[in-house]
C-alpha cells in the first residue's frame, strides 16, 4: 500500500477514528502513526472533526465507584485513609488476549532458540528479549538484552538486502519520536551498545526500519518494516 498518498492517508485516518478500520489493518495503522507525522496529523484532524458528533450524546454520570477505582489505580503510594493495602497494588491491565499473545510470543521465542541453538541450553540469566518476525511468522532477528549491550542474532531465514541497512529503534511510552539503537547484523551476531534510556518499563515498542547504507540520514526511521514488543521473562 502506498502510504505516501495523502488521500489514502486521510481515508485510512478517517476510518481509524470512526472505528471501521479493524483487525490487522487497524494495528498496522497504529504502528504507522508512531513513525509518520503525516499520518498522526491526519488522525488528529479527523478526531477533532468527528468527535463533534459526540455533542449529540446526552451526558450521564457514571456510578461513584468508578472514581474510587481510578483513584486507587493511579495511587502508587499507600494511603491508609482512602484505600486498603491490597487496592494499592497497581496491576497492569492485561487482557486475556494480551496474555495469550505473550504466551504465544514466548513460545515462538523458545522455539526459535531451539532451532538456532540446538546444542546450547537456554541461558538462565536472560531477562529481556525480543523477536522480530516477518508477515509469515518466520523469525528474522532475535535480541537478547544484557546489562550493557544488546546482543542481536540474525536468523538464517533473513534474506537481507545488500543495498540497504536495517536499523533498530525503540519507542518510549508517551513519546512520539523513535530513538535509534543501531544497525542490525545481516548475518551472524552483533552487539549493540545499550542506550542509557533503554529501560524495559519505559519501552512501548521496538521497531526495525529499512535505511540507506550507513543508517537513517535524518535520525528518524525511513521505512518501518517490523515492530515487536520487549518480552520480560
Amino acid at each position: 500500500m502506498n502510504y505516501d498518498n495523502q488521500k489514502l492517508i486521510d481515508m485510512l485516518a478517517a476510518e481509524y477514528v470512526l472505528g471501521t478500520l479493524k483487525g490487522p489493518a487497524r494495528k498496522r495503522f497504529q504502528r504507522l502513526m508512531l513513525t509518520s507525522n503525516r499520518i498522526r496529523e491526519a488522525t488528529w484532524m479527523w478526531e477533532q472533526h468527528l468527535n463533534n458528533l459526540a455533542s449529540s450524546i446526552k451526558s450521564e454520570p457514571p456510578s461513584d465507584s468508578v472514581w474510587q477505582v481510578i483513584s486507587q489505580r493511579i495511587d502508587a503510594k499507600p494511603s491508609v485513609h482512602t484505600v486498603s493495602p491490597e487496592a494499592n497494588v497497581i496491576k497492569p491491565k492485561t487482557s486475556i488476549w494480551q496474555a495469550w499473545s505473550l504466551i504465544a510470543t514466548a513460545a515462538s521465542i523458545v522455539l526459535a532458540l531451539i532451532i538456532w541453538q540446538p546444542q546450547a541450553p537456554i541461558q538462565q540469566q536472560t531477562q529481556q528479549i525480543a523477536l522480530f518476525k516477518d508477515a509469515s511468522e518466520q523469525p528474522l532477528w532475535f535480541i537478547d538484552i544484557n546489562e550493557q549491550s544488546l546482543s542481536v542474532k540474525a536468523s538464517d531465514k533473513l534474506a537481507a538486502r545488500t543495498d540497504k541497512d536495517y536499523e533498530l529503534w525503540m519507542i518510549l511510552k508517551g513519546q512520539d519520536t523513535p530513538i535509534s539503537l543501531g544497525l542490525l547484523p545481516k548475518d551472524g551476531i552483533k552487539s549493540l551498545l545499550k542506550d542509557n534510556r533503554f529501560n524495559a518499563q519505559d519501552i512501548a515498542l521496538l521497531a526495525i526500519s529499512l535505511e540507506p547504507l550507513g543508517g537513517s540520514p535524518n535520525g528518524l526511521p525511513t521505512e518501518v518494516l517490523y515492530t515487536t514488543e520487549l518480552i520480560l521473562l
Partner: peptide, 18 residues
C-alpha cells in the same frame, strides 16, 4: 491529583455516555 479529580468531574458524564 486534585486537578485530575476536577477534570474527571467535568468530563466523566459526557465520556461515560459516549
Amino acid at each position: 491529583k486534585q486537578a485530575f479529580a476536577k477534570l474527571y468531574s467535568a468530563t466523566s458524564p459526557k465520556l461515560f455516555a459516549i
